[in-house]
Design a protein around this nucleic acid. Sequence first.
DNA 1: GACGGCTATGTTAACGCTCACTCAGGCTCA
DNA 2: TGAGCCTGAGTGAGCGTTAACATAGCCGTC
Lengths: 342, 342
Amino acid sequence: MTDVAQLAGVSHQTVSRVINKHPSVTATTRTRVLAAIEELGYRRNSAARTLVTGKSQTLGVVTLNSTLYGPASTLYGIEQAALESQYFVTVASLRSTDRPAVRQAIGRLVDQGVEGVVVIAPLDSLAQALASLPSGLPVVAVEGDAAADIDVVTVDQHAGAQAATHHLLELGHATVWHVSGPSDWLEAQQRTTGWRATLERAGVEVPPPLRGDWSARSGFETGRVLASMPDVTAVFVANDSMAVGVLRAFHERGRDVPGDVSVVGFDDVPEAAYFSPPLTTIRQDFGEVGRRSLALLVDQIESGARAAERHVVEATLIVRDSTGPASPKRHLQKPPTKARPH
Amino acid sequence: MTDVAQLAGVSHQTVSRVINKHPSVTATTRTRVLAAIEELGYRRNSAARTLVTGKSQTLGVVTLNSTLYGPASTLYGIEQAALESQYFVTVASLRSTDRPAVRQAIGRLVDQGVEGVVVIAPLDSLAQALASLPSGLPVVAVEGDAAADIDVVTVDQHAGAQAATHHLLELGHATVWHVSGPSDWLEAQQRTTGWRATLERAGVEVPPPLRGDWSARSGFETGRVLASMPDVTAVFVANDSMAVGVLRAFHERGRDVPGDVSVVGFDDVPEAAYFSPPLTTIRQDFGEVGRRSLALLVDQIESGARAAERHVVEATLIVRDSTGPASPKRHLQKPPTKARPH
DNA sequence: GACGGCTATGTTAACGCTCACTCAGGCTCA
DNA sequence: TGAGCCTGAGTGAGCGTTAACATAGCCGTC
């Protein structure tokens, strides 16, 4: 910077003013300085700037496994929005899901000087860990719990699950079975709750949910169990990957989808429209989740206060070919469960 | 830091020594300092440290679209490895794929003070952009071109495509059709080259490749074209997503896979084993790609010199149910193309 | 025409840390 | 017993930038 100043025949402070677009600089000196910068290939040292201003222009993202479709898409949305807002994003993946791991990850980010953190915290243990955070740090949780006084951006899992279940009931199915995600995932919990609530409100029997781990493999395994039960005619699967496995299991048992069984997934991965059969599913706008959480975080940083709001992004039902009316045969074989008052 | 020093009754330099694990500190003073650090909740200011040492402990990753399975997995591998090596990772997504965009993204990272950059550069335009980079900066390209004197980590696309094509020929198919990726993607080019070379070596007719864009949708569209051509019995699709679409298209036309047509994909996404039918595909170890590129980058940073090596990660054929012997019927209908000497 | 108040620039002092010295004290060895 | 050396600790400078204050020149106004 001193070199630039010398070459331009001004003081280093004037150079600083030009860089920071300070108004009180003559057009002529500005061009002179810019020319000097260009000639010397000068780039401002961000460490020095950060040291004196206390602003690093860097945000942290804590994520669990950025290979899954949801987290990866959210991260991408955050990154895009950060670019827009002139922030850098540094990523910290968690190696385990317990409390100390979260603290350590956030600690690392804080040590590195991030101005705020987005935590993609879909596990209840992570959500809890957020409660015990240094309160000075701006934080936004994605898919976290609303309990802590922390900004949360979340997809309306409950409504999504309701829409899925309702869709199946409306098609005339006696009840809807459920393949859930891992029990410690909030999304899994909420989808299960939404499914159960819908069945109960309809006065319909609630079958025991089967548990998967989000993977297609686990979907296949639970799908085999369901395929062997003749009275299963409708299944709500907690994500599209598992739904692939479920579809496969039904196919192997010769049970036609949607002829014999209807299946609904969750996520609407880009391939869902081309599964066999094309999968009816719940679309989540992960990009929107990313953008919203970043906007919230930037707000916190600029205002200096946590809003502790809860932002809900909607989930929409996409009907495709994997769902159809309950076959009349089944209805005859098994009379509809007697409706209970509610 | 001064506060800590005061509380511990030592100089700030001693505190610095304790933090940096300098050997010449008595056990007693060390514990005293550590206690003071603990009590005051002191955390070292990384900006100040970076300013004086010139080391930011931060690496940059430039990526195109981290939503795709490959880039996302690679990024994850890099992140994990970086954590291991005590580095931070900041991500810069590209908004467009032209040269200035790459320069700008890298420029941003350099301004922010990264010590090195991994560029996930699967497009030939990006690979070229790397050639004209400031030579002082440690850089590793993933899936880039070997032309520039830059370290490259790449999956053996050519061998993977060969294995896929060879597998199909060995099953007795007269020739193998190909659904390729976008023409400006290096991976697409290499897979196409590998496919073509294998056919030519076998002295078999090379059908015109059909072009997709990696998406299941494009796979479906090209799949419809292929499904309408009765003499198509084997297809090598350049990634699993498109393969999903191709499988769907064949299914809709009533052409059985693998009975009538065999299909091979590329990537081995976690769901591939549960497609209908389970997809024969080429597995790429993206985690390994990420780890290798990071190791290479750290080497460059520590040694201060570019090695300009090319590291190849192997791709392996995973045989599942989407491929089977060419049906005898077809062989009768259409005699095998006369083998040409090579 | 003197004075207040702008504008364009310069000067100086931090920011929090590490590096290169310096220094005191205790040990070894001739 | 003193020269030399090692160890543990302290002192001061400086990394590159911005913030705060200082200054000089100019304009308009009463």
